[in-house]
């Protein structure tokens, strides 16, 4: 489980194709002129979760889990039939518990009320009563089918870059990069052949992963694939990494050059 993505609830129940995701928005689409607005809403709410999470001192992984919960919830519900603001608060509240870094319900209510009421959002109706948030939590957990453990690309990124401390050689992710294959020689997780990224490049990959939560990617692709894509983009966008790759003799660089990516 914790190590085996392929045996997880994440893989078994919460990966969808694009058509199914589109279907889930059918009701909401009736209320927008341009379907793109729905994507904008997705970005807007992801940003809001991130803001609330930071106010609650939640770690990035817990914020990511809250965002995944939010997107899963709206695979079964419509924005227009629910109040996304209380759903957001409940997602943060549950995710903090699921990630074993709980925040007190009172804090969630206070911070959510403060944040949502400011001029940017102008939502003054967020209930001050703890029990309303707890009630939402109850329904949320039900809609999430009690699947509260989510996998994230951060883990693959850090494992590939050998940043997981001493545990790397023993705790490689099964289901990620062929770990779990017990036989034969292996290079993954041995520390040999690890990806060497500059600190700032690693940071960029991390931020790219943060950004993926503004889209539906976490409902479509396994996290390790998202991590690889983020690393790929980093190799292209990160100036000095890009330069050093270009100048490296041993590196078959032609396909990269051919792509001619330019940071926008």
């Amino acid at each position: 489980m914790a190590t085996d993505y392929w045996a997880s609830s994440h893989y078994k129940r919460w990966i969808f194709d694009r058509a199914t995701i589109k279907q889930a928005r059918a009701l909401d689409l009736q209320y927008v002129e341009d379907p793109e607005y729905i994507d904008f809403l997705g970005i807007f709410f992801a940003n809001l979760i991130s803001k609330l999470g930071k106010k609650l001192s939640m770690r990035q992984r817990a914020i990511a889990t809250a965002t995944v919960f939010f997107r899963r919830f709206y695979m079964k519900n419509a924005y227009c039939e629910t109040d996304p603001f209380i759903v957001i608060a409940a997602c943060c509240y549950v995710a903090a518990k699921a990630e074993e870094f709980p925040v007190h319900i009172k804090n969630v209510v206070t911070e959510a009320r403060l944040l949502f009421a400011n001029d940017e959002y102008g939502i003054k109706s967020f209930p001050s009563d703890n029990s309303k948030l707890a009630e939402m939590e109850f329904y949320l957990v039900d809609d999430l089918e009690c699947d509260l453990i989510a996998f994230h690309p951060y883990r693959t990124l850090m494992t590939l870059c050998g940043r997981e401390g001493s545990s790397v050689s023993h705790d490689t992710e099964a289901g990620e990069l062929g770990a779990g294959v017990q036989d034969g020689p292996r290079y993954w997780g041995t520390g040999e052949g690890k990806l060497e990224l500059q600190e700032s490049a690693l940071q960029m990959a991390w931020f790219i992963i943060n950004d993926t939560y503004r889209s539906d990617l976490c409902l479509i692709y396994p996290p390790h694939l998202i991590a690889i894509a983020a690393i790929y983009l980093t190799l292209v966008f990160h100036e000095s990494t890009h330069e050093s790759l270009k100048s490296a003799q041993s590196w078959q660089y032609t396909p990269f050059l051919a792509l001619k990516f330019k940071p926008s």
């Binding site: 609830s9 319900i105 029990s131 707890a134 109850f138 509260l148």
Partner: peptide, 19 residues
């Protein structure tokens, strides 16, 4: 009333769903 699901219940549920 609703007062929030206990950490213990969240754990027991979350872990059991995976194993």
């Amino acid at each position: 009333t609703y007062t929030g699901i206990s950490q213990s219940a969240i754990r027991e549920i979350a872990l059991n769903r995976e194993i």
